[in-house]
């Protein structure tokens, strides 16, 4: 799906964080060895969503220009498939893929809006950084 406006990007961000949080909660119920990590990530994802949304609302006047900043931002470039793993190893691989997909999307969105806005690219990059740490942790 191609996105063009800040509002559309933010709706997609919301979707990524809330759906991945629900996914991690579901996996936590299936894989007890990962439960602690998954529950913590799910909680953190919901906080990320809130944090990004509040940042966006806080600098929304800047986005009048950003209505035109995202031409060509295609969500299909970033694979965030929420698969059904059979064991813990597959679950870890799936988590890595989700984190990498979200991270890639955030970095591209941040780069495309960097010249126009301050806070939203900053928060996206910060959360992308956390995701890099998560991938490392896995």
């Amino acid at each position: 799906m191609k996105l063009n406006t800040m509002a559309a990007v933010m709706t997609h961000v919301s979707k990524l964080e809330t759906e991945s949080a629900a996914y991690y909660e579901k996996l936590a119920g299936r894989f007890s060895g990962l439960a602690g990590l998954l529950e913590a990530w799910a909680k953190e994802n919901r906080r990320f969503e809130k944090n990004i949304r509040q940042t966006y609302y806080g600098v929304i006047t800047d986005t009048l220009e950003s209505n035109y900043a995202f031409e060509g931002l295609d969500t299909d470039e970033f694979d965030v498939a929420l698969t059904e793993p059979a064991d813990e190893a597959q679950a870890k691989a799936a988590m890595r893929k989700v984190e990498a997909g979200i991270r890639g999307f955030y970095l591209k969105a941040a780069a495309m809006s960097e010249g126009l806005m301050a806070d939203v690219p900053r928060v996206l990059k910060k959360i992308a950084g956390v995701r890099a740490e998560r991938i490392e942790e896995l």
Partner: peptide, 8 residues
């Protein structure tokens, strides 16, 4: 987004 900008 223009309306949200106005609200802000």
């Amino acid at each position: 987004d223009e309306s949200r900008g106005e609200s802000r």
